[in-house]
C-alpha cells in the first residue's frame, strides 16, 4: 500500500454527522451495557479500514478522544491504516501497555491477553479500568450462554461466535474482583452485546 492510499483512507470514513451519529451510537452502547446480553443493532455509520469493522469504528468515533488511551491488539496495531484512521478520527493516544489503556480494541479475540492484565481500577476508584471492545465473528450461532445480573429481568441467553478461549474462566475471575474489573463490548457486523463486570455468565440457556 502506498503512503498516499493510507492517508486518503485515514481521512475518510468518519461520522457524516458527528453530533447526531455520536449521540445515537452512544445510546446503543449505553443500552447494551444497561441491558447485558441484549443485542443492539446499529447502522454502519463509519467506514474504517479493514480489519476494523464499522460497528467498532463507530464506537471509537463516539467514545475515544485525546483524553483516552487506546490499546490495540497486535493485528490492529501492526496495521498502519487502522492506527492512522483511529488517530485521525479520534485524536486518541495509543499505548502499548494494557494496564494504561482506557479502551482496548481487539480484532482477534482468540489471542486476547488475560483480562487481569488490563487496568482493573482500584478499590477506591473502580472506574479507572479498561473497557474492552472485542470483534467476534457473529453475535449468534455459538454455544448458548446464560446471563444473569443487574440489567437483566430474569435471565438472558446469548450465543456469540468467536469468543476468546477460556473466556468463561477469565470472566469468572473478572467478576470475582468486583467492584474492580473490566467491562466488555462484543462487536460483530450486525451489532453489539454489552458485558458489564456485574454480569454472571454460565453455560446453558
Amino acid at each position: 500500500m502506498t503512503a498516499q492510499a493510507t492517508h486518503s483512507s485515514a481521512f475518510q470514513g468518519g461520522f457524516a454527522n458527528p453530533v447526531f451519529d455520536g449521540q445515537s451510537v452512544f445510546r446503543q452502547v449505553m443500552n447494551a451495557l444497561a441491558r447485558p446480553g441484549m443485542k443492539t443493532a446499529f447502522d454502519g455509520l463509519t467506514e474504517p479500514p479493514s480489519p476494523l469493522i464499522a460497528t467498532v469504528g463507530s464506537i471509537a468515533a463516539t467514545l475515544f478522544d485525546h483524553d483516552t488511551k487506546i490499546w490495540l491488539d497486535p493485528v490492529l496495531s501492526r496495521n498502519e491504516a487502522v492506527a492512522g484512521w483511529l488517530t485521525f478520527h479520534t485524536s486518541a493516544p495509543m499505548t502499548r501497555q494494557t494496564l494504561d489503556a482506557d479502551f482496548a480494541v481487539l480484532a482477534d479475540g482468540t489471542a486476547m491477553p488475560s483480562l487481569e492484565s488490563f487496568a482493573q481500577g482500584t478499590q477506591e476508584y473502580p472506574d479507572r479500568s479498561t473497557t474492552l471492545i472485542i470483534q467476534i465473528e457473529a453475535l449468534e450461532g455459538g454455544r448458548d450462554l446464560r446471563l444473569t445480573g443487574p440489567g437483566i429481568k430474569d435471565f438472558q441467553t446469548i450465543a456469540p461466535q468467536g469468543l476468546p478461549e477460556h473466556f468463561l474462566e477469565q470472566w469468572a475471575g473478572n467478576r470475582s474482583r468486583f467492584p474492580r474489573g473490566v467491562d466488555i463490548i462484543l462487536a460483530a457486523g450486525e451489532g453489539i452485546i454489552g458485558l458489564p463486570r456485574t454480569v454472571k455468565i454460565e453455560i446453558g440457556s
Binding site: 444497561a34 467514545l63 478522544d65 482506557d102 467491562d183 456485574t198
Partner: peptide, 20 residues
C-alpha cells in the same frame, strides 16, 4: 462534543458499577 464524550464515558462506568 468533548464534554459529552467525557460524561458519556462516566455514565457507562456508572452503569457497570451500580451505585458507585
Amino acid at each position: 462534543e468533548q464534554t459529552k464524550r467525557m460524561i458519556r464515558r462516566a455514565i457507562l462506568k456508572a452503569i457497570a458499577i451500580p451505585g458507585y
